[in-house]
């Protein structure tokens, strides 16, 4: 169990660093979606399935769609 939690935290860290470092804003939005996905799985393995459900539905789906619409309205490259 500790191996799963550690690998999920490392995945979240790598996704957050990628979201900060990438110049392409669409790739940065995809990296933030990766962070949200790993957070949902982490909530799931920490025995909180309802929080994981809310995080997966809101964080992984709606936030990415809203970010992509915002990038569509503005510029793609930073």
């Amino acid at each position: 169990m500790i191996i799963i939690i550690t690998s999920l935290v490392i995945t979240m860290l790598a996704g957050a660093i990628a979201a900060c470092a990438l110049r392409d804003l669409l790739s940065a939005a995809i990296a933030s979606c990766l962070v949200s996905l790993a957070a949902a799985i982490l909530f799931y393995f920490l025995q909180a399935p309802d929080v994981a459900m809310a995080e997966a539905s809101i964080g992984a789906a709606l936030v990415t769609a809203i970010l992509v619409i915002a990038i569509r309205r503005t510029e793609r490259q930073e």
Partner: peptide
């Protein structure tokens, strides 16, 4: 059921 919304938007 909900994870494809982000993929569809992208």
């Amino acid at each position: 059921a909900l994870a494809f919304l982000g993929s569809v938007a992208i």
